[in-house]
Structure formats: C-alpha cells, structure tokens
Write a protein that binds this DNA or RNA. Structure first.
Length: 461
RNA sequence: GGCCGAGUGGCAGAGUGGUCAUGCAGCGGAUUGCAAAUCCGUGGACAUCGGUUCGAUUCCGGUCUCGGCCUCCA
C-alpha cells in the first residue's frame, strides 16, 4: 500500500485513486524563458519517479506536465533579445527536453502549453464570472474575487486576514481587494495578445493550469505536484479557480518537492545562485546527477555541492562494480531486499531508504559472488530491476566504469590494453618496479587497475 | 510581524519510545608482490532546557539557531 504525504491535510495518507487502477497526475512544469536549473531538474526527476513507480505498481497513469509559454518574464526576455516570444520559448522548450532526456526523465503523457489552450482558458474565466467568482475591471483585466471562495487559503494554511496584513497595494490598482489575482490581463501595446470577450489580452499565470489540468484530467483528479514555492499563491489560486468554475473538488493529493539549496539558501533565479543542468553536466554524468537528487527524500531540502556530487560518483562506481561481470539472470526470489525496497518507496517515496537497501544488496552480491556465481547473478538482476524503478543502473557495467567521470581521454582503450599487457609481462618476470611504473602511468591518466584471479580490469575513476 | 518546516556521528542522509540505518571518510584485520577492488570488525550522534514515561534522539511545551512562504520563482 502506498502512503503519500498530502499537503492539503499535512499528513501521510493511504493513496487511493479516484478510479481504481487509474492515476491522473498533473505537475507544474517550467516557464520557458531560460535554461533549466537544478531546481527544475529536481521536479522533473522526482515526479518521474512517482510516475514510474505508480506504473510499476500496476496503475494506468496519465501524467501531465505543462509548459508555461506566455507570461511577463517571457515577454521581457523576448524584448531584451529582440525576438518574437514564441521563438524564444521554442528554443528553451527544446533545451528543456534535452536536459530531461539526459537525466533519464521519461516524457510525460501530455505536455500542454498555455498558448494552445486559449479557448479553454477563456471559457473557464467566463464560467467564473457567471458563477460570481470573477469580475471585469475597468481596464479590461479580469480578476478573481478571492473573498467569494470560502476555502481560500486552505492549502497554504493562510487566512485571508493574515494575507491581507502583508498584501501589497499598487497605486491605481483596479482590484477590489489587494488579494484578488488576474485571470486575464488586457494587452499593452506591442504585447502578444489574443481575442477575448474582454478585449485583446493574455491569460494570467494561474488560470492556464486550472484550464489545462481540468481539460486533460477532468474536474477532479488524483495528484497535483510541483515545487514547494508554488504552494502559495499558484496552487492556492488553482484550487479557487477550478473549484469555483466546476463546483467539484479539484485535487485529492497535493505533493510539493523541497528546494535545492546552496550554502543553506534556496537556489533560485532571483537570488542568482543557480546552476543550470548543462553546467553541471559538463562536470558530472547524468546518472550521477540523478542519483544525487534521489539521495534526499523529495520533501527535504537537497544541498548542492561538489562533495555531494562526488559522493554520488563513488556510490555509482560501487553499484556498477558489483554488477560488473555478472551474467544475465532472473532476479533472485526469496530475499527480503525487494520487499524492503518497496516498503521504503511506498512510504512517501523514501528514496534514501530505498537506496540504502540497494547498498545492502550490493554487499550481499560481493559476499556471495566468489562461491555462488548463480546466486550473485540473480541478486545482480534484482539490483538492476530495483535500480530501474529509480531510473538508475541500466547501463552496461563495464561500459559505465570505463566511461569514467569526466577524465580526459588521452588514452584510448587499445592503448590502455597494451599497457596492461606490458605490465602483465613485467609482473610475470617479477619486475615489480616496471609493473608499478606502468600502473602509476595509467593512474596519472585517470585509469585505475584492479587485479583479480580472473585477470586485470580497469576503470576510469 | 503572520504562517509553515527543520536542527542526527568528520560529511551526506534515513529512521525509531527500550537491539542495526545506509554511503563516503577514519581505525584494525583478511586478501594482494605492493596496490586497487572486495569482505570482516570497529569508534563516533541525535541543538538546548523542562515535562510525560519504568525508559525519549523519538511524544508534549519553552528557548536558541537555520530555511521557506507571505511578491515572480521548481
């Protein structure tokens, strides 16, 4: 049984989808005006794991992750660059897809874009006006009337009164209440805009997610996810919009992942302390980054640092070293590793605990491999299968270990083999100084040798 | 200021009312020509002050510290 922490109730709950065997999940994706940073990578990897695992549990999953391709930041950035906004967004959408693929993130089933859903957005706004939850301001903007929605603040644990205290009032504001938020923004000159019953304009940020999720998944669906910074106001506003428009409960389980941090501070665009996925992938392998993200439970902070990435590198080397040389086999039966792995995953996706189980599996493989090759192979198959549920450990072990972690490739595989052969000859002649000199030479080139009864193997380390 | 969340061994990071996390690093041993890899063993922790309890790192309360949201942000 899967247990999920539901932000709506602030408690772990047994997961029961609305329709047996079907899970409908919506995750807030990126606003595409720049490259993905590690925070975006975390969202993608975390919910990739959720989707993969639910599928492994046998659910028929519909996973929707949207793209916000029109908003103020996009317009500003496009103006700065002197290019049409859709040229800008297409470029960053392509970059995001590359980053996601590199990190082993499977594509969502649907990836709707705001600009493709203007009719749905407009009709939801019309319904909100009809139902008394929204009003047209004098300047053609349409606002959500926050006070018309009794439950406003439930998800984020805020009361309208508390919010009011900190609310910012813009001079000349056309809103009835400072907390009201825009559903439709009337177009300023030279801005991208669409026709609407309220004149030309564009959607507010929050309405697109309500309109697209409802269209794709129905009035009520199972899981809605995103970064913790979206809890308020974005997700709070989505609830107000969707429930205001449909009259039905919006989402059953709300999941928010914690932030990536640097030096105990949130990594964010505004603080300027972010690393893009690309920058990190120049120095670390994709699987190392993915592993690093999973070393922390998804709701906890994830502290970024070279030390942590180096640790991920070492961990994967240990995993693949255990897998190296094991023949293909059927996964072992009758061990409790699988059961413990699943117990960890089903406890709100406790990936650190699940990884701990995999390490114990590694130790067991290493322990038995010398006198129970078949047993080791079966355990290795189990390790691969379980790792696969996390999107890890799917490479050929030998290839992985020889592929190295960014070491220079001054020496080709053939050169290395030649040196190993020369060293072997020296060893047979008991010429230890010659043998060690060759080993040192390789070590300087980033090649680590490992002698065993079966011969000498090497890896880039 | 309001509302959340967190403080675990050298580092990272789970978890639990009373025996073990796990990985890296350290130490001892096995193995090795020497290494590497691997295995075995091992030291070291639960911010702080009270309370509940036979017993608390784990539950409750105070204090301190840190982070987040309250404005765009994954």
């Amino acid at each position: 049984m899967l247990t999920l922490y539901n932000d709506l109730t602030r408690a772990k709950e047994a997961f029961e989808p609305l329709h047996a065997n079907q899970v409908r999940m919506y995750v807030c994706g990126m606003t595409v005006y720049d490259l993905c940073h590690l925070g975006h990578a975390r969202v993608m990897v975390v919910f990739d794991i959720v989707a993969r695992y639910l599928r492994a549990m046998g659910y028929d999953v519909t996973y929707v992750r949207n793209i916000t391709d029109i908003d103020d930041k996009i317009i500003n950035r496009a103006n700065e660059r002197g290019e049409p906004f859709h040229v800008l967004t297409e470029r960053f959408i392509a970059a995001m897809h590359e980053d996601a693929a590199a990190l082993g993130v499977l594509p969502p089933d649907l990836e709707p874009r705001a600009t493709d859903h203007l009719p749905e957005i407009i009709s939801m706004i019309e319904r909100l006006i009809e139902r008394g939850h929204a009003y047209v301001a004098g300047n053609g903007d349409v606002y959500y009337d926050v006070r018309s929605f009794a439950d406003y603040g439930r998800l984020s644990g805020k009361s309208i009164e508390d919010l009011q205290a900190g609310a910012r009032v813009e001079p000349g504001d056309v809103k009835r209440d400072p907390l009201d938020f825009a559903l439709w923004k009337s177009a300023k000159p030279d801005e991208p805009s669409w026709e609407s019953p309220w004149g030309r304009g564009r959607p507010g940020w929050h309405i697109e997610c309500s309109a697209m999720s409802t269209q794709a998944l129905g009035d009520t669906f199972d899981i809605h996810g995103g970064g913790a910074d979206l809890t308020f106001p974005h997700h709070e506003n989505e609830i107000a919009q969707s429930e205001g428009a449909t009259g039905h409960p919006f989402v059953r389980y709300w999941m928010h992942n914690g932030f990536v941090r640097i030096n105990d501070e949130k990594m964010s665009k505004s603080l300027g302390n972010f690393f893009t996925v690309r920058e990190i992938l120049e120095r670390y392998r994709p699987e190392e980054v993915r592993y690093f993200i999973l070393t922390s439970q998804y709701r906890s902070p994830l502290n970024y640092g070279d030390e942590q990435l180096d640790n991920a590198r070492g961990a994967l080397t240990r995993f693949y070293t255990a897998l190296r040389g094991l023949p293909t086999a059927e996964p072992a039966s009758g061990t409790n590793f699988e059961q413990r792995f699943h117990a960890a995953m089903q406890d709100d996706f406790n990936t650190p605990e699940a990884l701990a189980v995999l390490f114990e599996l590694v130790r067991e493989i290493n322990r038995v491999r010398s006198d129970d090759a078949a047993g080791a192979a079966a355990l290795g198959a189990t390790l691969r299968t379980l790792g696969g549920l996390l999107g890890l450990l799917q490479d050929d072990a030998e290839d992985y270990l020889r592929g190295g972690g960014g070491a220079d490739d001054a020496l080709g595989d053939d050169d290395i083999q030649q040196l190993i052969d020369r060293r072997l000859a020296a060893k047979q002649a008991r010429n230890w100084s010659e043998a060690d000199a060759i080993r040192d030479q390789l070590k300087d080139a980033g090649i680590v040798l490992e002698d065993s009864a079966a011969g000498t193997t090497w890896r880039r380390g």
